[in-house]
């Protein structure tokens, strides 16, 4: 699957051979229970009746690993009781922790699983702006939000770098990235990855994250996430916005992770970058992810 490219991470990913092994394994089927339309006991009793086995996620009470091949064919999916969502992609909204009544931005929202999760966390109160620059991706974004019952969601289609002025309490930037961490689902993805591609994506990612920070009120939270291992797209991006925000540590009990890198290939990112978290496939049997939690500075010196 293009292991030569992944070799560049041998020194930073713990237990590297196990990592390579997991990268070739298919992902477990995972779903999120949508409490806007059902409850955990109600959904579990439906699965029991259907005879579908499940395992609950240790770190997230609404996450399930399902013993079924095609969860999108289940009646429960069309009823909006569940959403098919990769386990680790349920994490950024949990770190964001939006509250009912707040104004929240999801800057790169399609296909909408995380935006719908944010709506659910807010109990359909306040507003979540689900933005995506691609008009083609707006169709599935709207369809998912509607099926999942997100009444507090507004869909917009701005270029995220030029999202119009407004004040949010929280923002999620789940940035477009080289997607190395999705290789277990899309094995062809690694072949398209290169250092050059990561560096090309970096300027877009920095612009998106800076815009999200500018749109967030002082003291507000911005979560930056990607599904790639490339430091250029992760710590290399976060280190360039620390004039606007401070990094915050976070821990998710039940989910194994590694600290962010403080340097890479001779580039110094700064000591505080250890507060970011890296999630590797072999640590939790998930896809790969990077998550940083930033708090907008109180005194904005832009």
């Amino acid at each position: 699957m293009g292991n030569e490219h992944l070799e560049r991470y041998r020194d930073i990913i713990p237990d590297f051979d196990a990592f390579l092994d997991f990268m070739c394994r298919p992902l477990p089927v995972t779903v999120r229970i949508n409490t806007l339309k059902t409850s955990v006991p109600e959904l579990l009793s439906r699965l029991d009746r259907l005879g579908i086995g499940y395992e609950r996620m240790q770190w997230y009470p609404l996450g399930l690993r399902l013993d079924t091949e095609k969860p999108g064919r289940l009646m429960e999916f069309h009823m909006g009781l569940i959403h098919v969502q990769e386990e680790i992609s349920m994490l950024p909204p949990v770190v964001l922790d939006p509250q009912p009544g707040e104004r929240v931005l999801d800057l790169c929202a399609a296909p909408g699983g995380k935006a719908a999760q944010i709506s659910m966390q807010m109990s359909n109160r306040g507003i979540v702006v689900a933005n995506d620059s691609s008009s083609a991706r707006i169709v599935p974004l709207r369809a998912n939000l509607e099926r999942l019952g997100a009444v507090n969601a507004v869909v917009t289609s701005y270029d995220g770098r030029r999202f119009p002025q407004y004040t949010f309490e929280r923002a999620l930037v789940d940035a477009p990235c080289s997607s190395e961490g999705t290789a277990r689902r899309y094995p062809g993805v690694i072949a398209k990855c290169s250092v050059k591609r990561s560096i090309d994506l970096q300027s877009l990612q920095v612009s998106l994250l800076r815009r999200a920070l500018q749109l967030t009120e002082p003291g507000g939270v911005v979560v930056y996430s990607t599904c790639t291992f490339a430091p250029e797209e992760n710590e290399g991006v976060v280190s360039r916005v620390l004039d606007l925000a401070d990094l915050e540590s976070f821990t998710i009990p039940g989910l194994r992770s590694s600290p962010g890198l403080t340097s890479w290939n001779g580039i110094d990112y700064g000591e505080e970058l250890v507060k970011c978290r890296r999630y590797y496939p072999h640590e939790n049997n998930t896809g790969g992810f990077f998550v940083a939690k930033l708090r907008r500075r109180l005194s904005a010196d832009e």
Binding site: N124, R125, G126, I127, V129, I138, R142, L145, E146, G149, A150, V151, N152, A153, V154, V155, T156, S157, Y158, P164, Y166
Partner: peptide, 19 residues
């Protein structure tokens, strides 16, 4: 359509709330 806020936010919206 149903929406959670009394007024429509000042964006160029593709959709607001749910049909």
């Amino acid at each position: 359509w149903a929406f959670s806020l009394p007024e429509i936010p000042p964006f160029r919206c593709e959709s607001i709330g749910m049909r």
